[in-house]
Design a protein around this nucleic acid. Structure first.
Length: 207
DNA sequence: GAGAAGATTATCT
DNA sequence: GATAATCTTCTCC
């Protein structure tokens, strides 16, 4: 396969999240710090389609928190959740549209030793099995919000080919639009997180 | 300015 | 399966 240019990658990411999400499965995300480098192969993602998606942070318009989602594709949107967790999104779609792909799980393919230090006691398959676990393993946090994943220094996203089948299903933990099948994962991969429906989902389906 | 909810995880029964 | 931990952000009064 020919090497993808940065412009080509940005073009692929400039499409709607629902199209980008299955496309980026198998891609590699690396984070280099003074401690070293950890690389994860993405095995599970979810699409969030901006102001057309009641489950998206951007549903009610642009705010200080979600501003990065409205920016150009190829950047990282990090948000703090449940008072203790950081979750990472790959911003996609055209500039001005708040589309993003939540990185839900991955398999550590480089820097396993450093990953184990960051998640003491966790089994290798659990190192990045879940959105908050993935950011912990990669060492991603507040300072990485808005980082450029293609031209940046510490964070780098690289396309990669894979032969696995892709499965599709409803998103995890969302209380609105809970049945939209916008979650994608590599079939039979043991690093994919277990599905849990939000306890509030049914309340909102009735509303 | 107060209150509620949340794209979660670890831990306990 | 149920629940605590923990705090930022947004909504409404």
């Amino acid at each position: 396969m020919p090497t993808d240019t940065e412009a080509e990658i940005r073009r692929r990411l400039g499409r709607p999240a629902v199209e980008v999400a299955p496309d980026v499965l198998g891609w590699r995300l690396s984070h280099t710090t003074t401690d070293g480098t950890v690389t994860v192969l993405l095995t599970e993602v979810e699409a969030y389609e901006g102001d057309a998606d009641p489950a998206s942070h951007a549903y009610r318009g642009r705010t200080t928190r979600n501003a990065v989602m409205f920016g150009p594709a190829g950047h990282l949107y990090c948000y703090f959740s449940y008072g203790m967790h950081w979750c990472a999104n790959l911003v996609c779609g055209p500039d001005g549209l708040a589309s993003a792909v939540l990185l839900r799980a991955g398999r550590v393919v480089e820097g396993v030793e450093l990953a184990r230090q960051r998640r003491p006691g966790a089994a290798d398959r659990d190192l990045a099995r879940g959105p908050a676990r993935l950011t912990t393993t990669l060492g991603i946090g507040r300072v990485d919000n808005g980082a450029d994943l293609l031209g940046g220094r510490s964070l780098r996203l690289e396309p990669a080919h894979h032969d696995a089948a892709v499965s599709q299903g409803p998103r995890v933990g969302v209380s609105r639009a809970a049945d939209r099948p916008w979650r994608f994962w590599l079939a039979d991969d043991r690093t994919v997180s277990p599905y849990r429906r939000s306890p509030r989902a049914d309340d909102n389906e009735l509303a």
